Simulated scan of single mutants.
Amino acid sequence: MSSRSILGLIYMVQGLQQMGEDPEPVLARHGLSLNRLDPSTRIDRSRELRIYADLAENVKDPLVGLKLGGFYGLAGYGPLVMLLMTCSTAYEAFQAGIRYQGLTYLYGTLRFEPGDKLSCLVLSPMAMTGQAFRFRVDGEVSGTYKMVRDMQLSLGVDIHAERIDMPYPRPPEAADYEAYFGCPVRFGDTEARFWLRNEHLQLRLPSADPNAHAMYRAMCDQQLVAQQTSNDTLAERVLTHLGLFSGSYPSAEEVAKSLGLSERSLRRQLSEDGRSFRDLLAEARYAKAQHLLRHTTLSVEAIAQQLGYAESAAFIHAFQRWSGMTPSAFRGR
């Protein structure tokens, strides 16, 4: 099962909170809490989708999905946005975006359909039931619109949609969609479409850089490989869940509940595989400690807090037990 950055979920939950919604009860049912999520980690795609579906059933504002697009920051796309901005033309940027769409926050599938005067970027939505379908489609369409809008503002070019088609019946709030996108919006199609003028697609990007583009393409390729992580065993699923947390970690009972098991069943199944919850918690902490020591300048005290230690001395002692050296020595190497 593939995974991806948890940033998409964090952006959405933060957006819901700012719009007066309360996503915490849904997160709690999945064993999560916003203030304990580590933005540098990854989440299983199927699990994230279940959370989205549950959140959609609890929102009160029918325009929430549309408004959520504004909460997806351009920087959150990482190397992908730099890959797009170093393309030669807008058309090449759209083609690269389609090729690397797995690095976006989409669950639908993008493709490009050329035409004589107008071409369109097509989003085939993932099938979902009830309110979740409109919620997810609106979020993906407005998020894609926001990404293109932010890029064109930073580059000083004009790439706007002539019309947008939405894949569900016309809602009572249709006028709000045209006001949001600044163009006509047609409802009742089978897919979402952004209609673009061909001359806009030929615009040359001022930030084009073939050498930097090759570097970012290699980084994006590496990220695509990293997404194909396997969580086939219970121990791997437990490690993935523990990896989502920062500051404090859930108990064995809480982890078991999030995985649909009793604590007794969790411990028994782990024992049958020669593992224990205590060892897995240590493994998750050690992996996060190594990452923070290698890739950040956080102090040992700050890292200890992110790993849930009340005192840095306890963290230093644990790290020496795991690696045979102090955190400072590990970072020096």
Rank of each mutant, 00 (worst) to 15 (best):
Q101L: 01
R285S: 12
Q227G: 07
S328A: 15
R268Q: 14
L307D: 09
D38N: 15
P39F: 11
S5M: 00
S262K: 07
M12G: 00
L242Y: 04
Q18H: 09
V141D: 01
M12Q: 03
F94Q: 03
M1P: 14
T229L: 13
A329V: 15
L270K: 01
D116R: 03
L32F: 04
L37H: 06
G324P: 15
S88Y: 12
A302E: 11
K288C: 06
F319I: 11
G20R: 02
D176E: 15
A214W: 01
T233M: 03
A256E: 07
L110V: 02
S3F: 06
I303C: 06
Q152A: 00
R111M: 02
A53L: 13
E57P: 05
I159K: 00
E162Q: 09
N231W: 07
R264E: 10
R268L: 13
H30S: 01
D61Q: 04
C183V: 15
A252M: 10
C87M: 12
I164H: 01
C220S: 02
A289D: 11
A252C: 05
T86P: 04
V255I: 14
A75W: 10
V59K: 04
M126H: 08
R45E: 15
M166F: 14
I6N: 02
D273T: 08
S40V: 12
G70K: 08
M215L: 14
T89W: 00
T229P: 02
L270F: 11
Q95V: 04
H200C: 10
L239R: 10
M19T: 06
M215G: 03
L118S: 06
V81W: 06
L293H: 05
R331Q: 07
L27H: 04
I43V: 12
Q228H: 15
A218P: 09
S154L: 14
D116K: 04
G65Q: 04
C183N: 06
N198H: 10
S251V: 08
W322V: 11
G188I: 11
P79F: 00
I316E: 13
V238K: 02
G70T: 05
Q101D: 01
A75P: 03
W322L: 07
D273R: 10
S248V: 10
F112H: 10
